[in-house]
Computed example of a mutant assay.
Amino acid sequence: MLEQVRQTELLENEVLVKIVATSICQTDMIARDQDYLVPHPIVLGHEGAGVVEAVGDSVLKVTPGDHIVLTFLSCSSCRECISGHPACCENFRDRSFSAHRIAGSHALADQQGGTLNDRFFGQSSFGEYAVANGQNVVKVRKDTPLALLGPLRCGIQTCAGTALNSLKVSPGSSFAAFGAGAVGLAAVMAASATGATTIIAVDILPSRLKPAMEVGATHTIDSTQGKVAEKIRAITGKGVEFALDATGIPTVINTMIDCLRSRGEGAIIGLSKPGEKLTLDLMDLLNQCIRRGVVEGDSLPDQLIPTMVDLYMAGRFPFDKLIKFYDFSQINQAAEDSEKGLTLKPVVRFS
């Protein structure tokens, strides 16, 4: 539902951003459907890009006129944040899913001045303006098309960061991405950028496998056509060194593990519904296959997002091939197309 809302007073540590475009992520739909509980009614949106319009008195990181990408909000003071892992912030839920400022107030109100939940990932960017914290804005170069950059904030940051930071995919190595939506394909691009020489995309939709070859995959596998592990071993000999699951589906995660070679390393980044269980064969642990869950690519957004922008501008990270633009008034259609697999990465633009 689209309606006019009111902005409350900007705090000294906050930034007012005029949104140019916001991409839609699976997490928005999960919160919309309350599979992941956040208070409703709420303004969602967490992949915004725009121009700084105003800053609070204590904000030094950006100034009005700067082009920025909005990222997640962490506390900056817990053990994980201090050690350089803000995506694992011990207060992540309070900062990103409480739907209010830490003190309990809101940045937005309805037309009658009533409570309107916001602060989704510290931004709530499904609107012409967003109020963020000075900490979760990332300044980007102005010679890049700003409307493209929102997807770098979450899904693409998560998978690229996982490939680069967590798995540390290396030159000449082998890599498999399970799930060839926008997230999995961004992992394919990141692996290609590192110099991996065998890059396999796995999905049930042939329509997703074709673009995988266009953005860096050397092989694709339709997982409905035979045993995936056997096909991967036929390609690699003994399995892949690195793999990533972007589906969150337990059976697919087990297949990913089966495809790892001895001491191979896999990462789980796909969202599962609360209560989903993963059953492992303990012999896999004896075989020293290493696996981990990764949040937000374990990234430092102020480093990774500008790096991805530079790679894109150098022609080495063609994430724009995943994007389809919609007018903001078409946001429901954009979400539906994404859920049906018709659009890899929908981005809603403000005119």
Rank of each mutant, 00 (worst) to 15 (best):
residue 220 T to H: 01
residue 197 T to Q: 12
residue 47 E to L: 01
residue 81 C to F: 07
residue 3 E to S: 12
residue 111 Q to P: 01
residue 116 L to S: 05
residue 150 G to D: 03
residue 85 H to R: 12
residue 349 R to F: 00
residue 296 E to I: 07
residue 187 A to Q: 10
residue 279 T to E: 15
residue 82 I to W: 01
residue 97 F to H: 12
residue 38 V to Q: 04
residue 272 S to G: 14
residue 226 G to L: 03
residue 23 S to W: 00
residue 193 A to W: 04
residue 82 I to H: 08
residue 53 E to D: 15
residue 294 V to H: 09
residue 98 S to H: 06
residue 156 I to D: 00
residue 227 K to C: 00
residue 333 Q to A: 00
residue 182 A to D: 08
residue 134 G to E: 06
residue 346 P to E: 05
residue 289 C to M: 15
residue 29 M to G: 11
residue 78 C to S: 07
residue 125 S to F: 04
residue 230 E to L: 01
residue 100 H to D: 01
residue 270 G to V: 09
residue 37 L to G: 06
residue 17 V to W: 10
residue 48 G to Q: 02
residue 190 A to G: 08
residue 225 Q to N: 14
residue 92 F to M: 11
residue 323 I to L: 14
residue 299 S to N: 08
residue 181 G to V: 10
residue 117 N to L: 05
residue 190 A to Q: 04
residue 206 P to L: 07
residue 90 E to Y: 02
residue 222 D to H: 09
residue 326 Y to N: 06
residue 319 F to N: 03
residue 155 G to L: 07
residue 308 M to G: 04
residue 2 L to M: 07
residue 303 Q to E: 14
residue 180 A to D: 02
residue 27 T to S: 15
residue 314 A to H: 09
residue 298 D to W: 04
residue 259 C to A: 06
residue 1 M to K: 12
residue 200 I to E: 06
residue 194 T to K: 07
residue 194 T to S: 11
residue 271 L to A: 14
residue 219 H to I: 02
residue 211 P to Q: 06
residue 188 V to H: 06
residue 120 F to Q: 04
residue 64 P to F: 13
residue 338 S to T: 07
residue 199 I to R: 11
residue 143 D to Q: 07
residue 115 T to D: 08
residue 270 G to N: 07
residue 81 C to A: 05
residue 87 A to G: 15
residue 335 A to L: 03
residue 178 F to C: 10
residue 318 P to R: 08
residue 7 Q to S: 13
residue 113 G to L: 06
residue 130 A to K: 12
residue 131 V to F: 12
residue 110 D to G: 05
residue 175 F to H: 12
residue 341 G to I: 04
residue 308 M to E: 03
residue 295 V to N: 14
residue 109 A to F: 04
residue 150 G to K: 00
residue 226 G to A: 03
residue 210 K to G: 00
residue 78 C to A: 10
residue 153 R to D: 09
residue 134 G to H: 09
residue 165 N to I: 05
residue 179 G to K: 06
residue 258 D to E: 15
residue 167 L to I: 12
residue 312 Y to P: 02
residue 257 I to M: 15
residue 79 R to I: 05
residue 230 E to H: 02
residue 174 S to G: 10
residue 181 G to P: 09
residue 244 L to Y: 11
residue 293 G to S: 14
residue 156 I to C: 00
residue 195 G to H: 09
residue 176 A to G: 13
residue 10 L to W: 12
residue 24 I to Q: 01
residue 1 M to C: 02
residue 233 R to K: 15
residue 73 L to I: 06
residue 21 A to H: 13
residue 80 E to C: 04
residue 320 D to C: 05
residue 245 D to V: 04
residue 232 I to F: 09
residue 167 L to M: 13
residue 11 L to S: 10
residue 216 G to A: 02
residue 26 Q to A: 11
residue 29 M to C: 11
residue 297 G to A: 10
residue 201 A to V: 07
residue 235 I to M: 04
residue 241 E to Y: 02
residue 224 T to D: 04
residue 177 A to E: 14
residue 312 Y to H: 14
